Deep mutational scan, measured.
Amino acid sequence: SKIRITWGDKTWEWDGDDEEVWKRILEWARNLGDEELWRHVKEWVDK
């Protein structure tokens, strides 16, 4: 399956939905430097 994140007018996609993928997404969000996006992603990961 895919994980799709839409933020503003951008959309990103990742293949898979296991823990490793979420770790990569969390790292990606942090590297993007958008605090609010990172917080949202972290909330999803922690669920």
Rank of each mutant, 00 (worst) to 15 (best):
D15E: 13
W38K: 11
W12R: 03
R4P: 02
T11M: 08
W12H: 08
I3S: 01
E27V: 12
E43I: 04
D18M: 09
W44V: 14
K42M: 14
G8R: 10
V21W: 03
W14T: 01
D9A: 05
L26Q: 08
T6I: 12
T11S: 12
D34Q: 04
R30I: 11
D34G: 05
K23S: 11
R30T: 10
G8T: 02
D46Y: 03
K23G: 09
L32T: 15
K47D: 07
R24M: 11
S1E: 12
E19R: 11
R39N: 15
E13L: 04
K42Y: 12
W38N: 09
W38Y: 15
R24P: 03
A29Q: 01
K2H: 12
D34I: 11
E20P: 04
D34F: 07
W38M: 15
W28C: 03
R39C: 04
D15L: 05
W44A: 06
D15W: 08
R4L: 10
T6C: 03
E20Y: 13
L37G: 02
E13A: 04
E27M: 09
R4S: 15
T11D: 07
V21E: 02
W14E: 01
E35M: 08
G8K: 11
D15T: 07
R4K: 14
G16T: 10
W22Y: 15
E36P: 06
T11V: 14
W22S: 05
V45W: 14
K47W: 03
L26K: 08
L37C: 03
G33H: 08
W38D: 05
W14N: 01
D46A: 04
E13Y: 09
E36R: 06
I25T: 01
D15M: 06
V45R: 04
L32H: 15
V21G: 03
E35R: 05
E20H: 15
E35S: 08
I25H: 00
G16V: 08
E20T: 13
E19D: 11
I25V: 10
K42T: 15
R24A: 15
L32P: 01
K2M: 12
E20W: 08
W7K: 03
G33A: 09
W38S: 11
G33D: 11
D17P: 09
V21C: 03
I5C: 02
D9R: 01
E13I: 08
T11R: 04
V21S: 06
S1D: 10
S1P: 11
K42R: 06
W7R: 03
E20K: 11
R24E: 11
W38F: 15
E20N: 12
E35G: 04
L32K: 11
W44T: 07
W7V: 09
T11I: 10
D17V: 06
V45P: 03
I3Q: 01
D15V: 09
D34C: 03
L26N: 02
E36W: 05
E13Q: 06
W44F: 15
I3T: 03
I5P: 00
R24L: 14
K10M: 13
V21Y: 01
G8D: 07
E20F: 12
I3E: 00
W44R: 02
A29F: 06
W14D: 01
A29I: 04
W28E: 02
L26V: 07
K47Q: 15
W28I: 02
V41A: 02
L26D: 06
I3V: 10
E19N: 09
L32S: 14
V21M: 06
W22V: 07
T6L: 05
I25N: 00
L32N: 08
L37F: 14
N31M: 13
K42D: 06
R39I: 14
D9V: 03
E36S: 07
D18E: 11
D15C: 02
E35Y: 07
E36Y: 03
W7E: 00
I5N: 00
H40C: 09
E13T: 09
I5T: 01
W28R: 00
V45N: 07
E36H: 07
W28S: 01
K47L: 15
D18N: 14
E35A: 09
W38G: 05
E19K: 14
R39K: 13
K42F: 14
E43N: 06
E13K: 01
E35D: 14
W38I: 15
E13W: 07
H40E: 14
V21P: 04
E19I: 14
E19A: 12
V41Q: 00
W12F: 11
I25A: 05
L32C: 07
E43Q: 04
E43H: 05
S1L: 12
R30H: 12
E36D: 12
N31S: 12
E43V: 04
D46H: 02
D15P: 06
R4V: 15
W44S: 02
G33P: 07
T11F: 09
R24D: 12
S1Y: 13
H40G: 15
V45K: 09
E27D: 12
H40K: 12
I25S: 00
A29L: 04
W22F: 14
R4M: 13
D46E: 14
L32V: 13
V41Y: 02
L37K: 01
H40A: 13
